[in-house]
Amino acid sequence: MNAYIFLALSIVCEVFGSSMLKATNGFKRILPTIGVIVGYGAAFYGLSLSLKTLPIGTAYAIWAGLGTALTALVGIIIYKENFNSKTLYGLILIIGGVTLLNIG
């Protein structure tokens, strides 16, 4: 399987795990807590598989940058968190930084 597919699946799992953190209520709710554990476990496993082929700097930049941006979008859409111009500029800078790292 292509390393970028493993990386993409890893990002989706990381976003899921991060999104479940808010629902755990400080790890007092069992199902969201299991979601965090499974999400992060799968995310790190997928990332490790992608690192068999991809350089660590490139893979981690994509994983962390897109994971952060997508988690912020989940917060805005699902959890109704604030969205303003600073949030937009921050997301643009994250995506732009990941793009520049990949071009370089």
Score class of each variant (00 low, 15 high):
Leu101Glu: 00
Tyr45Leu: 06
Phe16Asp: 08
Ala23Thr: 08
Thr24Met: 03
Gly90Phe: 12
Ser10Asp: 07
Cys13Lys: 09
Thr99Ser: 00
Lys22Glu: 05
Thr24Arg: 06
Tyr89Lys: 10
Gly65Ser: 11
Phe16Leu: 11
Tyr45Ser: 00
Gly65Trp: 07
Leu21Pro: 01
Phe16Glu: 09
Ser85Gln: 11
Ile94Thr: 07
Gly39His: 01
Ala69Asp: 10
Trp63Arg: 01
Lys86Gly: 12
Ala69Gln: 14
Phe27Arg: 01
Leu51Thr: 10
Gly35Thr: 09
Lys28Arg: 14
Ile11Tyr: 00
Ser18Arg: 01
Leu73Ala: 08
Ala42Cys: 15
Glu14Gly: 13
Phe44Gly: 09
Ile92Ser: 05
Asn102Val: 07
Gly46Ser: 03
Ile11Cys: 12
Phe27Gly: 00
Ala43Ile: 04
Ala42Asp: 06
Val15Leu: 01
Ala43Pro: 02
Gly90Leu: 05
Gly65Asp: 10
Asn102Pro: 04
Met1Ser: 12
Ile76Ala: 05
Ile78Ser: 08
Ile95Ser: 11
Gly104Ile: 12
Gly17Ala: 07
Ala3Val: 11
Gly39Gln: 06
Leu9Tyr: 07
Gly26Val: 02
Leu66Cys: 09
Ser19Gly: 08
Val15Asn: 05
Arg29Met: 05
Ser50His: 04
Ile78Lys: 04
Thr33Lys: 06
Leu73Pro: 12
Ile30Met: 14
Leu101Trp: 07
Thr87Phe: 13
Ile34Thr: 13
Tyr40Val: 04
Leu73Gly: 02
Thr68Asp: 02
Ile94Trp: 15
Ile62Pro: 03
Asn84Arg: 14
Gly67Asp: 12
Leu70Thr: 07
Gly41Lys: 14
Pro55Ile: 08
Pro55Val: 03
Gly57Ala: 06
